[in-house]
Design a protein around this nucleic acid. Structure first.
Lengths: 257, 257
DNA sequence: CGCCGTTTTGAGTCTAGTCAAAGGTGGTGG
DNA sequence: CCACCACCTTTGACTAGACTCAAAACGGCG
């Protein structure tokens, strides 16, 4: 399989989770295999990439950056010059209204992309905050753009990543616009489960990295309501929760809430 | 100013609204001037485009398509091969959940882009429905992609359009996630007003092309609530409404709701 | 062990939803 | 050109679901 292997000495690859094997579907050579895109149904765009192309890719992924829990990878209005993929840890993206109200627009886990919001104004349009001590690959946009120009498979993959972000946000709007609190929480857990599975973790047992308040903000409900809905789903035997530890007991039932 | 002039005989340009003059800010040569992008703060990316480049652009914009009120420009799962810009009329985009619930994710007016959701899966991810008899420019994606490859200013503009869509959806999530019904309606009207202004129409007087139900669905509230909030804003002297006819009486007051 | 931030649960309130009915509007066909 | 019909909009009365405020329980960390 075509996959970029960075030098493990200078770029230690995060320990692969035990249960692996099903994570090759969503990958292309446009991004390293341990940084899968969240677009699981992405078209196979990497067919044309050659080893030479991939060598170039390494050169733009050469820097990493650590971000401490609670601090920002970037903030609204920061000049845009790079996008990022999460290597370890996880992030939330938050936009802030004039009046101070905040909206969590997404959570990003290992392999997911951050910073695409900055492309259109040359400045970032949200804050990206680490939910735990994290590390990202820094991809300078100018370099990525020139690589895209040279390698059409990477170009297409990048279009795909941008479009995928649009589609994902649409799904989030569906949640915010049409679902009851119980449905939102169920849909949220199922989405997390899918994403855990996509990166080789158990889709049944996982633990949350965000607080009830952050989840609630993301889902457009209050933290107390999140807690109540967890209790309700527990009572119905659909999930099992222990604080931030989640076990999905009845996946089908959850999807029917 | 650099602007593509299609042959008016074969490509009649929609009658320009009376009040014009302030709409050049958001334009670049990447799209014709009468098809302004919705990214008002777009960086000036067209500097490098030459007349020769622009001739190529004409060639990909050569087809138009008419869509009757109520019918679809494309539907979910249709194969993706083109994006569209609205020449006349307007559209809504709708995503449909398994259980049949629908969410209006946006309204598109003259000059705005449709179809970017299809890039990531090679199939469209929403329905685009004409709210009135409309006409679009059809831009075959393969051609646009090759043009982007040849002209870096167009490439950058296209990135910008994609990213702008992401940012716009974030703002919509903010509305859905954090605002009261009254605030949603006020924000909706202000957004429409800005967009009317950006295409040279009066930002104060305009008429809506969508029903209360479509507005409500977009804003995540019920049609009766939309109506009540219109009445409330009217009573406060902030707007004046007559069915679909809207007049913004106190813009500042509206923005403070 | 004790503290602080987080989570859970309860009671009461309020916003927006639901159901229902009347009033408008615009489009079509006679 | 007018009348009718279908659809859209407004308003009211009542209800339900989520929010607010409050307090207690839990959990992790120094």
């Amino acid at each position: 399989m075509l996959a970029v292997q960075l030098n493990p000495a200078t770029h230690p690859i995060p320990a692969a989770p035990a249960a692996s094997g099903q994570q090759s579907r969503s990958q292309s050579a446009a991004f390293p295999h341990y940084l899968p895109s969240r677009i699981d149904h992405a078209a196979p765009v990497a067919k044309g990439a050659t080893l030479l192309d991939l060598t170039r890719l390494q050169s733009i992924l050469c820097t990493t950056r650590k971000v401490k829990r609670g601090s920002a990878l970037y903030r609204t209005h920061d000049p845009f010059d790079s996008i990022y993929t999460v290597r370890t840890g996880c992030f939330k993206t938050v936009i802030t209204h004039r009046d101070g109200k905040e909206q969590v627009t997404g959570f990003q886990f290992m392999g997911e992309v951050l910073g695409l919001d900055g492309l259109c104004t040359e400045r970032h349009n949200c804050d990206a905050i680490a939910l735990e001590d994290s590390e990202v690959s820094v991809i300078r946009f100018a370099l990525l753009a020139s690589l895209c120009h040279q390698v059409s498979s990477i170009q297409h993959h990048f279009y795909s990543v941008l479009s995928g972000e649009i589609v994902r946000e649409s799904a989030h709007m569906m949640m915010l616009g049409t679902m009851s609190a119980e449905q939102r929480v169920a849909a949220f857990l199922l989405d997390l489960s899918d994403r855990m599975k996509a990166r080789g973790y158990s889709p049944v047992d996982f633990n949350l990295r965000m607080t009830r308040e952050e989840m609630g903000n993301y889902m457009g409900i209050k933290l107390e309501t999140v807690s109540r809905m967890f209790s309700k789903l527990k009572k119905q035997g659909l999930v099992d929760t222990h604080g931030k530890q989640i076990r999905i007991v009845n996946r089908l039932g959850l999807s029917r809430v």
